[in-house]
Simulated scan of single mutants.
Amino acid sequence: MKRTVAFLLILTVLVAGVTGCGSTTKVTEQVINLGGIQPMTGGAATFGASGKNGATMAVEEFNTAGGATVDGVKTTINYINEDDAGSPEVGASAAQKLINQDKVIGIIGPLMSKVSLAVALIAQAAGVPMISHGSTATQVTLVGDYIFRACFIDSFQGTVMANYAWNTLKVKTAAVLYDNGNDYNKGLAEYFKAGFEKNGGKVVAFEAFTDEDKTVDYKAQLTKIKATNPEFLYLPNYYAAVALQLKQAREMGLNVPAGGGDGWDSPDLVKIGGAAVEGGVFSNHFSKDDLSPKVQAFVSAYTTKYRAAPDALAALAYDAAGLFLDAFKTAGSIKGSDIRDAMKNTSFSGVAGVYKFDENRDPIKAAVILQIKNGQQTYLTTIQP
């Protein structure tokens, strides 16, 4: 989509200078808009807050470092964050507002795959680059060539946990309980099942429910699962639902090891689930315990600024915004196609990994396995792609 100076918020400073002939020098600085779409309310609200924080921090650092130069003009960024409430419809409205009213040059987010699929159609049609920090459903980037992501995809994440359950936990049977109304949950469930069975394991129960934001009683599905005597319980859902599912499972005597995906990564998992989530393992994109100087500098700066340690979604949003802004600076242009092309060819080192995109604009990255131990996330191992 063509972007002109008319779309920009311009700050013009006139400086009068006297030379041998006498002249007036015109110095122009411009501020352009970058959009963000996060679930600031709803069942994934803690992720939305983290994502907003991470993206905001990256933008502030970019501006402090001098921004970019576009047609000889110093250019800095104004970040506008919109709430999608975990709803595709709300997310689509937010995208329309950001693109048509705010004239953003790109969108960071959304987080949830079901929302990203709705927003991606709008961004692609408008020629506005979008980079989701947390949407792991495989089909998100297949919408079009303006759509990127900063996270690994569900085919990798689901298989990682299937391999971990088989090779490390040495279990032979597993049960799955998932939300069939969300592409993220459903995708992880299917990839885990395929990977586990490929290893030689047996998925003895594959139970579904609809809409984890509204469902609070999982006893019917858990009763069916318990009757199959699984050795492992895979819950590819978000933290609030997982906490309730494990509390109800433990109450009925279903005390087998449990695991899941990056949707577990919230302090509210332990706050809600308490002792029921202890020992659970999950795949994730980032560990604050990574000792690399870059990660520790980020953790320190984030913790100082927000008075809480960053989770994976904070790190991914920080990287997504940083990667986008790096491509924008390289392109030296506000045209969506120029920024897109620079992003395709990027080689960006972030706090949640090194980013180089494949043909579908998905990064090839490692995953970490974390465990809830004594109420805290504990790093176990890193799994390479």
Rank of each mutant, 00 (worst) to 15 (best):
F7N: 10
V299F: 06
A49N: 12
Y191W: 11
T41V: 08
S50T: 11
S113A: 10
E29C: 12
F47G: 14
Y239S: 13
D217T: 09
P385Q: 07
T381S: 10
V59M: 10
N53M: 06
A314D: 10
N345S: 08
N374A: 00
V59T: 14
G35K: 02
F232S: 04
R3H: 11
A55T: 15
S155I: 02
M161S: 02
V59F: 12
A44G: 08
A241L: 10
V160I: 05
Q245W: 11
D362A: 02
G43E: 08
G106W: 14
K365E: 02
M57Q: 13
L380Y: 06
S347Q: 07
D183T: 09
G42K: 10
G274V: 02
T303I: 05
Y191N: 12
G91K: 04
W264C: 01
V299C: 05
S347D: 09
D183L: 01
L14S: 11
E89F: 13
K294V: 12
G273E: 08
V295G: 07
T304P: 02
V256R: 07
A331P: 04
E359C: 00
G43P: 07
A123E: 15
L380N: 07
G127T: 14
A118Q: 08
A331F: 07
L9F: 03
M130H: 14
D145P: 11
N237H: 09
T346L: 04
L98P: 04
E251W: 10
V203W: 00
T378S: 02
L11T: 09
E61F: 08
Y238D: 14
E197T: 06
K74W: 12
T69R: 04
Y164K: 02
T75F: 07
D358N: 06
A68N: 02
V73K: 15
I272E: 06
P39D: 11
K2D: 06
N33A: 00
